[in-house]
Simulated assay, not measured.
Amino acid sequence: MERMRRTVPGILAALILLACTSCTITQKDPDYVPPPPLSALEQLKQAPVADATPFSAGSDVLSFVTADHSAVCSLTSARGEHINLPYEQNAYSDAANNKLAIVPVAHCELAVYPKAEAADVADDCAGTGLGYLGGTALLTPEKASYGECRSGVTQMEAEFGPRGSKNGPVSQLPVLEDGQNLERNGLRCSAYNGGVACGNVSAGVAFFVSRDRYELISAEGADPSATPSEAPKTP
């Protein structure tokens, strides 16, 4: 009996030693540098495509907000300059515009946004040269653009800008989680790297937008535009 009492502690000690030797201790490598994020087009190519059903806003439109509510985007259609957006007033369905061709587009609005670079200003705003503001991005199958002529604020800025109400149609939209991809009519949008990328992968055309910078990627491989962070511009 005495011998058994002596043996039991020995067995326990051996088991503890065995458990400790099988443990591994993970230490951070101080020299480790995480890989840079993928380019916009590579992200759109590689990210898995999510089920579109939760994002359907009716009338063949997919709409979402990012997890931090910095951007709202729609994969939708346009007739001329009229874009079918469920959270903005628009004339897409007006009978007078039925004669216009329907084009698949991706459209994003930012709550806080950088100013458009001079080279990216695409409209003289009825000859005035005034009122071209950033905060929106548009993708067609052939081209990406940033900014537009407008007065006032977008619905996204009204809800989630610096003085936003946090209440309205945008606040009711589903969240596209970081790294997820949506696709409609050959165009894709992905939430990643603190913003949203949308593109036509087959044509090599895309944009990336976030609160402090944007990029426009053309099929010709021109250098993307990039701008520093600025406060939103309102008239």
Rank of each mutant, 00 (worst) to 15 (best):
R3P: 01
R6T: 09
V8I: 15
I11L: 14
T24N: 11
I25W: 14
K28H: 12
K28N: 14
P30Q: 06
P34W: 07
S39G: 14
L41K: 01
L41N: 02
E42F: 04
E42G: 07
Q43K: 13
L44W: 05
K45Q: 11
A47T: 04
P48W: 10
V49F: 03
A52V: 10
F55L: 02
V61T: 15
V61G: 03
L62A: 01
S63L: 10
A67D: 08
H69Q: 07
A71E: 09
S77G: 07
A78C: 05
R79A: 02
G80L: 03
G80H: 00
H82P: 14
I83E: 09
Q89A: 13
Q89C: 01
N90G: 02
A95R: 12
A96Q: 12
N98L: 11
N98G: 15
L100M: 06
I102V: 15
I102G: 08
I102M: 09
V103P: 01
A106G: 08
A106W: 05
H107A: 12
E109Q: 14
V112C: 00
K115F: 07
E117A: 15
D123E: 05
C125Q: 04
G127K: 11
T128H: 07
L130I: 08
G131D: 05
Y132G: 03
Y132Q: 06
L138K: 04
L138G: 02
T140P: 11
T140W: 07
S145L: 13
G147D: 02
E148K: 10
C149W: 03
S151V: 13
E157C: 09
A158L: 10
G161Q: 06
P162T: 13
R163F: 12
R163M: 12
G164Y: 09
G164F: 09
N167E: 14
P169Q: 08
S171E: 10
Q172G: 05
V175C: 00
V175I: 10
D178S: 14
D178N: 11
Q180D: 12
R184T: 02
R184P: 01
N185W: 04
N185E: 12
R188K: 12
C189W: 06
C189L: 04
S190C: 14
A191E: 13
Y192A: 15
N200L: 04
V201E: 03
A203E: 12
A203L: 08
A203P: 09
G204K: 05
F208Y: 15
V209C: 01
Y214M: 13
Y214K: 07
E220T: 14
A222C: 03
D223P: 15
P224E: 00
P224W: 00
S225E: 08
S225I: 13
A226N: 10
P228L: 00
E230S: 13
P235M: 11
